[in-house]
Amino acid sequence: MTVTAPVLPETTTPTPLLPAKRPFRFSRWFAATGWRHLVGIAMVVFSVFPLLYVLSASLNRSGTLLQSNGLFSSLSVENYVELFSSPERPYAAWFANTLVIGITTALGTVFLGALAAYCFSRMRFTGRRVGLLSLLIVQIFPQLLAVVAIFLLLTTLGEVFPILGLDNQIALIMVYLGGALGVNTYLMYGFFNTVPDSLDEAAKLDGAGHARIFFTIILRLVAPILAVVGLLSFIATTNDFVISSVILITPEKQTLAVGLYQFVSDDFTANWGVFAAGAVLAALPVMALFLYLQKYIVSGLTAGSVK
Rank of each mutant, 00 (worst) to 15 (best):
S233I: 09
N239T: 09
L256Q: 06
A270H: 14
A227G: 15
N271L: 12
I247N: 07
I235T: 03
G278I: 02
T237F: 00
I235V: 15
G278W: 00
Y261D: 04
L256H: 03
S244I: 08
L260Y: 04
S245M: 13
F268M: 14
W272P: 04
V258A: 14
F268G: 10
E252K: 08
L219H: 05
P251T: 08
V274D: 00
L260T: 08
V242R: 05
F241N: 07
T237C: 08
A270V: 12
P251H: 07
L226R: 09
V264N: 02
E252Y: 06
I249R: 13
P224D: 03
I247M: 13
N239H: 01
L219S: 09
V242N: 07
A236T: 06
T250A: 13
V274Q: 14
L260C: 10
V264E: 00
T255C: 11
F263A: 04
Q262F: 08
D266H: 04
I247D: 01
E252W: 01
F241L: 15
I225T: 14
I218Q: 08
T269Y: 11
V258F: 01
W272L: 13
G259N: 01
Q254A: 06
L232A: 09
L221A: 14
S245D: 02
I218S: 06
V246S: 14
T237R: 00
L226M: 13
Y261A: 12
D267V: 15
V228L: 12
L256M: 09
V229Y: 00
S244R: 03
T255L: 15
L226D: 07
G230H: 00
L248F: 10
S265K: 09
V258D: 02
G230Y: 06
P224R: 10
L260W: 08
S233W: 00
S244V: 14
D267I: 15
A270P: 00
G230D: 02
V258L: 06
V264G: 06
G273K: 06
L226I: 13
Q254H: 05
G273S: 11
R220S: 14
G273D: 07
A236Q: 00
T255S: 04
L248Y: 02
L219Y: 10
E252P: 00
I235F: 02
A236H: 03
I243G: 05
G278T: 08
L248G: 09
D267S: 13
F268K: 08
L232F: 10
E252A: 08
A257M: 06
I247F: 07
A227S: 14
T255N: 11
A223T: 15
D240V: 07
A270S: 12
A236Y: 05
G278R: 03
L219R: 11
T255I: 10
V228C: 02
A276E: 12
I225E: 01
V264Y: 04
L221H: 13
V264K: 03
W272V: 10
D267T: 13
S245T: 13
Q254F: 11
V222W: 03
L231R: 00
S245E: 05
V228D: 05
T250F: 02
T237H: 02
I235M: 11
F268A: 15
T269L: 14
W272D: 09
